[in-house]
Nucleic acid binder design. Structure first.
Lengths: 147, 147
DNA sequence: GTTGGTGCAAACGCTTTGCATCCAT
DNA sequence: ATGGATGCAAAGCGTTTGCACCAAC
């Protein structure tokens, strides 16, 4: 897994990153990224589309889909599967961590250390199976929603 | 989370379980369950439909969807999200465990103990967030596919 | 006999695609 | 100037639903 080498808030570095890959740094892609950066929770595609249109009124839904696909490939954004099977997106966390999603207010409260590294090694040793990847999401109730 | 109180291979107990819930134990539901029980790997809906039709030729796709929904509610079957976002189904494992899916041959090789129990407690204590649920799937390469 | 389940086809919603136009480089 | 990106609308695909009929109880 390739990790980002720059802070996602540094626009010049991001522009440079796009150019290295031969991709254009279009207002639409900037807007999608900005919307996700400014959100504290995961956003559905429709939500992203609505917010992007506030910045850039003419933007089409297909463009949002294509932008998200690009941003995921660049590891700037992650796609998550929510419990009901719907998809949402958020900016990629620094390093390898896992989100805790509050099931009441849907905020991403915190990232926790990945508990899988030790486990993967242990499993590979015990079973001969080479663990290559994992998908972990935590769901819970944040302090505010426990009242 | 309600755990099953019987072995999934005991048909009388399953019939009884359906009746307790006021549900009919139809040939279609039996067939869907049987197909999943006899498979060693996760099956897509279309795959399940194809296999069910071998046992019960007239079965419609909508019935497969509805049967799976019912079986998931009864905790006899689990729905999984694969890496590409597609859904598949498998019989529910005994107790709380997590599957390791081989990314080459797509078999479910083994279930591992859940590493989340300790972590959930630790996190709840450290952060005040009440961890209620988690979603963990492991992907790797089984021995046969490592050559 | 009743009630829930099934099969079929139509409807639905999310996502992708084809194509002419546009614009970042 | 030129090739990639966009906007729009149509197509695609997995999934759900309405309804008449059927079968488990």
């Amino acid at each position: 897994m390739i990790s980002k080498l720059f802070s996602i808030s540094n626009y010049d570095e991001i522009r440079e990153f796009f150019h290295e890959k031969g991709l254009k740094y279009t207002p639409q892609r900037q807007a999608v990224l900005k919307v996700l950066q400014e959100s504290k929770s995961y956003l559905s595609i429709n939500r992203i589309h609505r917010n992007v249109k506030e910045l850039l009124p003419g933007t089409g839904l297909a463009t949002v889909y294509r932008s998200l696909e690009t941003l995921v490939e660049l590891n700037l954004v992650v796609k998550v599967h929510l419990e009901d099977g719907c998809h949402s997106y958020a900016t990629a966390p620094e390093g390898h961590r896992h989100p805790i999603v509050c099931t009441d207010c849907s905020r991403v409260i915190q990232y926790t250390e990945c508990p899988m590294e030790d486990l993967s090694k242990k499993l590979s040793k015990d079973t001969g199976i080479l663990i290559q990847n994992h998908f972990l999401q935590l769901f819970g109730k944040c302090k505010q929603c426990q009242s």
